[in-house]
Design a protein around this nucleic acid. Structure first.
Length: 268
DNA sequence: ATGGTCGTGCGACGA
């Protein structure tokens, strides 16, 4: 009994539908969580994705910006959209599915990037990001009785030293400042979440999921960051069998700046 | 090296 879940910041699902289809045919996850779909609910290419076996789709879209969706082969119920910071952004959606006799809630997040200046007094976008992370601290992996939890998404923070190409050079760069990295580690600790990517890949190894569009040669420079994450409640962590970071997707035609990350589980 | 590149949707903004 296996389960695979992928997360991918797609940076416009309409523009990049061809590579979404390629990825689904090739990786064939049970569930794909997308961020930055950049469209309204009725513009989401649900028919094309359903045609590949993903007939269960829940969407929290928005015109032009942000937007998240869950595409699943398994039935989705009790979907919920939380308006973090109460600003009307579409940055979260969750739903329940059943697997191996378990009830599991999956959360899909797109945390604000936070702008360039890591100072909330002069950059409101950084303040918004910190407030968003603060609100996430109240989300427990054990929030619902008899329900396990999985949390995925573009969290726009690289929390560990080897989640960035140069810890020292990144300490004042938004996504790796101490207030952000400590905040995200607090979200994990307070919510009793397990970082499944780092359960699989030792913290001493470099691990990236995003490479900037601005680099002349992203692969040669390899100045990446681990901005995308897959977490779970403690009960699911022993069932994790593998993590796949599809780095080659960064080199595909008209790529997203993020690559898909997949967690593979197996129940006894 | 304080630039650089994207997407949306038509000017500027967010990333």
């Amino acid at each position: 009994m296996t389960l695979s879940i992928s997360t991918w910041n797609i940076n416009s699902v309409r523009l990049r539908l061809p590579i979404v289809e390629d990825f689904l045919k090739r990786a064939n996850p049970d569930i794909l969580c997308l961020q930055e779909i950049k469209c309204q609910n009725d513009q989401f290419p649900a028919d094309a994705i359903a045609a590949l076996g993903y007939g269960n789709i829940v969407i929290h879209g928005q015109k032009g910006y942000h937007g998240v969706a869950i595409c699943s082969k398994l039935a989705l119920t009790e979907d919920h959209r939380q308006d973090y910071c109460g600003v009307g952004d579409s940055r979260h959606i969750s739903a329940i599915f059943e697997w191996a006799g378990r009830r599991i809630r999956i959360h899909n997040f797109y945390v604000p990037a936070g702008g360039d200046e890591p100072n909330r007094d002069i950059n409101p976008k950084f303040g918004h990001k910190l407030d968003f992370v603060e609100e996430m601290k109240r989300l427990s992996a054990e929030a619902e009785p008899n329900t396990a939890s999985i949390l995925v998404g573009d969290l726009n923070i690289a929390p560990l030293e080897h989640d960035v190409w140069s810890h020292k050079q990144m300490l004042k760069i938004v996504s790796h400042t101490p207030v952000e990295t400590e905040g995200l580690l607090d979200v994990m600790r307070q919510g009793k979440w397990v970082d499944l990517m780092r359960q699989q890949v030792p913290a001493s190894e470099k691990l990236y999921t995003w490479w900037s569009y601005r680099a002349k040669d992203w692969a040669a420079a390899d100045r990446g960051r681990r901005l995308d994450h897959i977490w779970s409640s403690a009960d699911l962590a022993p069932m994790l069998k593998g993590i796949d970071v599809l780095k080659e997707a960064r080199g595909w035609t008209q790529p997203s700046d993020h690559v898909p990350v997949t967690a593979r589980f197996e129940a006894a």
